[in-house]
């Protein structure tokens, strides 16, 4: 069982080298512990799927699951709720794309490091 290849060619247990540049950074299992990710990408990867609160230029607050972003910080949120005034009744929007240029601030719902989401 040492020879894995049908062609008879010995396969080297090669070092895992990711292609550079990455076209997509995801939180999919195979990429989770990828050592070659830059710190920023790692941060984004960590935040993906978490709840994000974005304040946009006209003062509205959008809260939804962080789904996708790109270089210009255009952000896609899913199951998004739109608040004209925070605390009042929101309007549920579903999927939204917030252009980066309209973002004033963004906050992440940071979990307590002690309690994992799985436990909840």
């Amino acid at each position: 069982m040492t020879d894995l290849s049908i062609t008879g060619q010995q396969v080297q247990a090669q070092q895992f080298i990711p292609t550079e540049p990455f076209r997509i950074t995801t939180n999919a299992p195979h990429q989770m512990n990828d050592v070659s990710l830059t710190p920023g990408r790692k941060k984004l990867q960590k935040w993906l799927g978490r709840v994000l609160r974005i304040v946009i230029t006209d003062g509205r607050v959008l809260i939804g699951f962080f789904n996708c972003t790109d270089r210009d910080a255009n952000i896609v949120l899913s199951m998004c709720a739109e608040y004209l005034v925070e605390g009042q009744e929101p309007r549920l929007l579903g999927n939204v794309m917030v252009p980066g240029k309209h973002i004033v601030s963004c906050c992440i719902d940071e979990p307590d490091p002690q309690s994992s989401l799985l436990v909840q």
Partner: peptide, 16 residues
Amino acid sequence: ACAELQPGELAQDMLF
């Protein structure tokens, strides 16, 4: 963090 991404590169949720 976003500025580290290449033009056209996406960071996306696995269900996206």
